[in-house]
Write a protein that binds this DNA or RNA. Sequence first.
DNA 1: CTTTGTGCAAATTCTTTGCACCAAA
DNA 2: TTTGGTGCAAAGAATTTGCACAAAG
Lengths: 142, 142
Amino acid sequence: MVSRKENVEKYLVEHGIKPSFQRISIMDYLRTHPTHPSVETIYNDLSPRIPTLSKTTVYNTLKLFVEHGAALMLTIDEKTTHFDGDLSSHAHFFCLGCGQIYDIEMDASVRERASESDLFTITETHLYYKGYCRKCCEKSDK
Amino acid sequence: MVSRKENVEKYLVEHGIKPSFQRISIMDYLRTHPTHPSVETIYNDLSPRIPTLSKTTVYNTLKLFVEHGAALMLTIDEKTTHFDGDLSSHAHFFCLGCGQIYDIEMDASVRERASESDLFTITETHLYYKGYCRKCCEKSDK
DNA sequence: CTTTGTGCAAATTCTTTGCACCAAA
DNA sequence: TTTGGTGCAAAGAATTTGCACAAAG
């Protein structure tokens, strides 16, 4: 029987990240809390269990995760940066009222059904692509 | 013959915004610079022509535009907030190399062609919806 | 040892706020 | 007048940096 933390450790190593205690804790938190937490939330929730934890480490660690493709940074909310440990293809819905971020299937029909059934009232759609433009690809082989 | 500024003025009024000199200037800037400028850029570019302009006014004005649906706030770049005066349905591409934001047609085939022709190397896709969730819709009729 | 990670405090940056002055109706 | 817009300076919040100490190999 392999523990959850051991799986997280393996996951980090697979992404080229040395699995320190803090890193495992933060990734474990991300994976067990698919709520798109912010740095603040992660820090506040882990702090009691890891009293020495600093916010700097949370910042450092999340940045590392994103750089290694082990987590996603969501900029859907202009006020707060959120993080997602779920790398599977899915869209996000940001409630302008309560600030909650919900997962939505990428599949169009599911999305429409969610909208039609009044689960969400969608007022804005943002489709963002990120990557490298031709100029930048030519400069260095990214 | 109607001047460009007069058209901008009409546009603001249509969106329920009182057309002050600063507001007209900033909206005119947005419409003549489809480059998704930041507060900083707008301020720096307009400052020489409007020496009394303050950054606070740029912030206030853009916030007003977004609230009245006269402009879009882009959070594609986690470092800087960008603004778009083009309200037509289109996707955005953010170059992780140079930070440039490009417009992309929403139409899937065009997008794929752009990608295939090596105009862009897309590494991330973010589909963001914003609006109100059921709970928030029930609270107040937004 | 030597390298890497952690965490405190300070610095920096971005954005908002409070308030006084100015302009338009 | 009265209301709303502007802009300065200060405050506030989010994030980064510099550096010293701790941990791991």
